[in-house]
Simulated assay, not measured.
Amino acid sequence: MTGRPGRRQATLDAAGPGLRLGPLGFGASQGGNLFRATSDEEFAAAVDTAWAGGVRYFDTAPHYGLGLSERRLGAALRSRPRDEYVVSTKVGRLLVPSPETAHLRDPEGFDVAADHRRVWDFSRDGVRRSLEASLRRTGLDRIDVVYLHDPDAHWEQAVREAVPALAQLREQGVVGAIGAGMNQSAMLARFVAETDVDVVMCAGRYTLLEQGALTDLLPIAQARRVGVVIAGVYNSGLLARDVPPTDATYDYRRAPAEVLDQARRIARVCQTYGVTLPQAALAFVRRHPAVASTVVGMRNEAQVTETLRRAAVDVPDQLWAALYDAGLLDVHC
Rank of each mutant, 00 (worst) to 15 (best):
V243F: 09
G179V: 00
F122D: 12
G74E: 02
G65P: 11
T11S: 07
Q157C: 02
V269K: 14
R124F: 05
I230P: 08
Y64T: 00
V296R: 01
F110V: 02
A223K: 13
Q172A: 13
H63W: 15
G31Y: 15
A114C: 12
V269G: 07
V315Q: 06
P81E: 12
L188D: 03
D40T: 09
R287M: 13
T207W: 12
L24Q: 04
H149L: 02
M187E: 12
D261Y: 04
V47A: 13
E306C: 00
D121T: 04
R20V: 09
E161D: 11
R253A: 15
A75P: 00
Q157M: 10
D314G: 05
G6T: 12
Q168G: 08
G109H: 01
G179C: 08
L208I: 14
P5K: 13
D40H: 13
L329A: 08
L140N: 04
L277H: 13
N235P: 09
R268K: 13
D247V: 08
A52V: 10
A311R: 03
R124L: 07
R78Q: 13
T49Y: 00
R142F: 15
F284I: 07
L148I: 05
T246P: 14
P219V: 12
T276E: 11
Y252R: 09
Q9I: 07
P107F: 00
F284A: 11
E42N: 04
F110K: 02
G25I: 03
D13Q: 12
D59M: 01
A221G: 15
V228I: 04
W155P: 03
Q318M: 08
R137V: 05
D106W: 06
A10Y: 15
A44G: 15
N235Y: 03
T307M: 03
T272K: 07
G22D: 07
Y324G: 11
A322Q: 05
G237T: 02
A37I: 08
P164Q: 04
Q172W: 01
E70K: 06
R124M: 02
